[in-house]
């Protein structure tokens, strides 16, 4: 892992203080990403990070690369345009669970289907943070949100299964509570040629934690428990996530690199795929 001083080199100090809440783990994710950029050896002038709308998406403003804060859910399309027009750039997308899976779900799956050489990071905190704690497509059944005051009754997406099904050629899941693992997965994702998708289990103490009585940010992270290759988020332990889990496994979701394949990369140019 790169030192803090090295990571600071990649931050826009002049843009601080940032807008994230105390206890929000998105900063940990951002740090792990910057560390991976350094480990992989990407020239910051040739790095572009595109984001949609939401808390995770605001993060890109603090990264000292070429950064584009796009519209809600549409970041993959902007990123596609950048990568296809200027293939020498390394292009990543930061997206939230509402941004990437609700309003932007169509763009996300088509980016995967085309296998454009992008690294997509999906910050999953099970809630819409920026707009004040509404239910997301990832909100667990039973979890409280401002638009699910009696507990969510909708089945959440398993984002990784969705992206494997859509054709992403690198799919991984990691937790903000394990930053070293996260940085390693980010490095693998950045190295991978084709569409890489990394779902990061993050937290939102301000809304999700408060509504569901899960404690402070550090408490929420500490409660994320790992057994073998599965990870249980706090709510899973309390209420289970029956819709996405086979009955013989403990509540939780699979962790680590879940899928990896090589498939022609879409370039939109003569000669076609590489």
């Amino acid at each position: 892992m790169t030192t803090t001083a090295q990571v600071r080199e990649h931050l826009r100090g002049w843009a601080m203080p940032h807008v994230l809440c105390p206890g929000c783990a998105h900063g940990i994710v951002g740090r792990a990403f910057l560390s991976a950029v350094d480990d992989v050896g990407i020239d910051p002038d040739q790095m572009a990070v595109v984001a949609g709308i939401g808390c995770s998406s605001r993060l890109v403003g603090y990264l000292d690369f070429c950064t584009l804060h796009a519209t809600h859910g549409r970041a993959p399309s902007f990123a596609a345009g950048i990568k296809l027009a200027r293939p020498e750039l390394t292009v990543a997308v930061f997206s939230g669970d509402g941004d990437g899976l609700a309003i932007g779900g169509n763009h996300l799956i088509h980016a995967a289907r085309r296998n454009i050489d992008l690294t997509v990071v999906l910050f999953n905190n099970e809630i819409y943070g920026m707009t004040g704690g509404q239910a997301a497509p990832t909100t667990s059944v039973g979890a409280i949100a401002s638009t699910a005051p009696r507990g969510s009754v909708e089945s959440p997406f398993d984002a990784c299964k969705l992206m494997i099904g859509a054709g992403a050629t690198f799919v991984a899941r990691a937790a903000a509570s394990e930053p070293y693992t996260l940085a390693r997965i980010f490095a693998d994702a950045l190295d991978h040629e084709g569409l890489s998708f990394v779902e990061v289990l993050s937290d939102c103490p301000t809304y999700f934690g408060r509504y569901n009585k899960l404690g402070s940010g550090p408490e929420m992270l500490a409660a994320i428990t790992r057994s073998d290759n599965r990870i249980a988020i706090p709510l899973a332990g309390k209420r289970s996530i029956p819709t996405i889990d086979p009955p013989d496994l403990p509540p939780g979701v699979e962790l680590g690199t879940l899928h990896r394949e090589h498939r022609p990369v879409f370039t939109g140019r003569a000669g076609g795929a590489t």
């Binding site: 902007f78 345009g81 169509n106």
Partner: peptide
């Protein structure tokens, strides 16, 4: 692209590239 929203999104991305 997959729709007209993303079509113009890609065009804007390409413009900045």
């Amino acid at each position: 692209m997959e729709d007209e929203i993303s079509s113009l999104g890609a065009v804007i991305g390409a413009a900045f590239a």
